[in-house]
Simulated assay, not measured.
Amino acid sequence: MSEANVALPAMRVSYEAGALHEKSLADTWHEQLQGWLDEAVEADLVEPNAMVLATADAEGMPSSRTVLCKGIDERGVVFYTNYTSNKSHDLQQTRVAAATFPWLGLQRQVNLRGTVEKVSAEETAAYWRVRPRGSQLGAWASPQSRVVNGREALESSLNGIERRFSDAEQVPVPPHWGGWRIRPDFVEFWQGRPDRLHDRLRFRRDDETWHIERLAP
């Protein structure tokens, strides 16, 4: 057994960076989430808009991966991906997802879950226009989640796409690519506290009304 494995039971951090009180919450979950995201940016955290996305297939087999949040408003949280990817197949089958923003540097996390919907073609196009050209070409070149015959196959595909759009001033949006929006029913804001008595405040939707609840840590 390695020294690192022996040390695992003793690894712990005393969370003393702050507290979360009901009176300090924003009026809405999305304003609170945007505020915490702004603070994560100001703290210079790595990839502050990264969130761990959890899905499940029709048989209930779960999967998780990290994606980048590209939109927050009263409708939900948005990310973009290939519509033929494994995550999109899961979402098309079950129409539900969960996500976690792990802001460990601030001893915070936000957990949300709800139903999903595709964003409009207009919203997808607006985001597509601000993506780097290399990322646009990569979206065309990569058959996301499929088995490929080595790195060379991907690079060959990219080279072909570069030639295809070499004279195009604007690379078009692939028909198999776009955004998903998670429309949350629950959004939990978690702030680490000493002795594992963490603060957990949750926005819970009941029809069109949101309620704020404190959860035991």
Results as ranks from 00 to 15, higher is better:
residue 138 G to V: 01
residue 161 I to F: 00
residue 21 H to P: 00
residue 51 M to H: 09
residue 58 A to K: 14
residue 67 V to K: 13
residue 151 R to Y: 05
residue 185 D to M: 04
residue 177 W to M: 12
residue 25 L to V: 07
residue 7 A to C: 03
residue 122 E to P: 00
residue 71 G to N: 12
residue 150 G to K: 09
residue 134 G to I: 01
residue 157 S to I: 00
residue 90 D to W: 00
residue 115 T to W: 08
residue 142 S to M: 04
residue 134 G to N: 13
residue 80 Y to W: 14
residue 72 I to Y: 03
residue 88 S to C: 08
residue 117 E to P: 01
residue 39 E to A: 15
residue 216 A to M: 08
residue 202 R to E: 14
residue 102 P to D: 09
residue 41 V to L: 09
residue 93 Q to Y: 05
residue 188 E to N: 07
residue 107 Q to M: 03
residue 100 T to R: 07
residue 201 L to H: 15
residue 198 H to P: 03
residue 92 Q to C: 04
residue 69 C to M: 14
residue 84 T to K: 13
residue 198 H to S: 11
residue 161 I to T: 03
residue 51 M to A: 11
residue 214 R to V: 01
residue 88 S to Y: 00
residue 162 E to I: 12
residue 177 W to P: 11
residue 26 A to C: 10
residue 66 T to S: 12
residue 40 A to V: 10
residue 154 L to T: 13
residue 44 D to R: 13
residue 28 T to E: 13
residue 181 R to L: 13
residue 58 A to R: 13
residue 165 F to I: 06
residue 129 R to N: 05
residue 2 S to G: 04
residue 183 R to Y: 00
residue 193 R to W: 03
residue 186 F to Y: 06
residue 156 S to Q: 12
residue 89 H to K: 13
residue 68 L to P: 03
residue 87 K to R: 12
residue 48 P to R: 10
residue 194 P to A: 15
residue 159 N to F: 00
residue 125 A to T: 09
residue 96 V to H: 15
residue 87 K to T: 07
residue 4 A to W: 09
residue 119 V to L: 14
residue 89 H to M: 01
residue 63 S to D: 15
residue 140 W to L: 08
residue 154 L to Q: 10
residue 148 V to N: 05
residue 179 G to E: 06
residue 41 V to Y: 15
residue 199 D to E: 09
residue 188 E to R: 10
residue 166 S to N: 13
residue 186 F to W: 10
residue 48 P to V: 08
residue 160 G to K: 10
residue 50 A to W: 01
residue 82 N to F: 04
residue 61 M to E: 10
residue 139 A to V: 05
residue 148 V to R: 07
residue 122 E to S: 09
residue 111 N to S: 14
residue 176 H to R: 09
residue 19 A to T: 15
residue 40 A to N: 09
residue 169 E to L: 02
residue 181 R to F: 02
residue 118 K to M: 02
residue 71 G to C: 04
residue 6 V to K: 15
residue 123 E to I: 06
residue 192 G to S: 05
residue 8 L to S: 11
residue 69 C to N: 15
residue 170 Q to Y: 02
residue 142 S to E: 04
residue 24 S to A: 14
residue 17 A to D: 08
residue 51 M to Q: 09
residue 8 L to T: 12
residue 63 S to C: 02
residue 174 P to T: 01
residue 127 Y to S: 02
residue 128 W to C: 09
residue 91 L to Q: 12
residue 132 P to C: 09
residue 30 H to F: 12
residue 190 W to D: 05
residue 18 G to V: 08
residue 123 E to S: 13
residue 115 T to M: 05
residue 78 V to W: 01
residue 145 S to T: 10
residue 13 V to N: 09
residue 38 D to Q: 14
residue 40 A to D: 04
residue 130 V to G: 02
residue 19 A to Y: 05
residue 189 F to G: 12
residue 46 V to R: 10
residue 100 T to C: 14
